[in-house]
């Protein structure tokens, strides 16, 4: 049984990330439920996706606060916003990126966020997927790089080959190769244990 929360900002490709993870899990023989919250605007709002999988039947589309084994955040403020979903012994995987809401009254610094993770005493893994995506020349592939990290850290029990198959089922044309490359880059990032991998 696994409960994963995906969090981020509208336009970052969270729904697609959820689809790929779900497709791969289904191909791996799991039952899957993925609840997407399509927000009010086409872009810019806070987005959350619930991913649930099990060898048995999965009934409910969502889970509750404190229940997720893993939180994948494509943005750091959203990591803080959704941390209440993570169980105390769960793992946070956060993309090293801060997108301040426009005209926001509060500014948050990276140090403060990292300090908060430490204070909460959770395991966390911060990885700069956006820079990696830009390096690869595929700025839109931050989400699939994070998928690679999720896979590399063994938070989803499926082989890379099934992720590839899921990518082929969901994407079209050149995006297939781009995303396969991105997933591999993510797996690699998960191996270079950054200094901020805390237990």
């Amino acid at each position: 049984m696994g409960d994963i929360v995906l969090a981020g900002v509208g336009g970052q490709g969270l729904i697609t990330l959820g689809r790929v993870v779900g497709e791969a899990l289904m191909l791996g023989g799991y039952d899957v439920k993925i609840a997407e919250v399509h927000g009010l605007s086409q872009r810019g709002g806070a987005v959350i996706v619930y991913v649930r999988f099990d060898r048995d039947h999965v009934y409910a589309p969502t889970f509750s606060q404190g229940e997720a084994n893993t939180l994948v955040a494509l943005e750091m403020i959203e990591a803080v916003r959704r941390i209440n979903f993570l169980s105390k012994d769960g793992l946070l995987i956060a993309n090293d990126l801060i997108l301040s809401p426009p005209a926001s009254p509060i500014t948050v610094r990276r140090e403060d966020i990292v300090e908060e993770f430490k204070k909460l005493g959770i395991k966390y893994f911060i990885v700069d997927a956006t820079t990696e995506a830009n390096k690869l020349g595929f700025p839109a592939a931050t989400n699939t790089i994070m998928l690679g990290v999720l896979l590399g850290l063994k938070r989803i029990p499926i082989p890379l080959s099934l992720i590839d198959k899921a990518i082929e089922n969901i994407f079209d044309g050149e995006k297939i190769e781009i995303n396969k490359t991105a997933v591999r880059a993510g797996v690699k990032l998960s191996k270079v244990a950054p200094e901020e991998f805390h237990k």
Binding site: G10, R43, G45, V108, E116
Partner: peptide, 20 residues
């Protein structure tokens, strides 16, 4: 026994939807 959720003290900004 329900899990007590993590409760961060850091004040973060809301993220209302915006015009593109």
């Amino acid at each position: 026994n329900l899990p007590t959720p993590l409760n961060p003290s850091l004040n973060i900004p809301p993220r209302p939807p915006t015009f593109c």
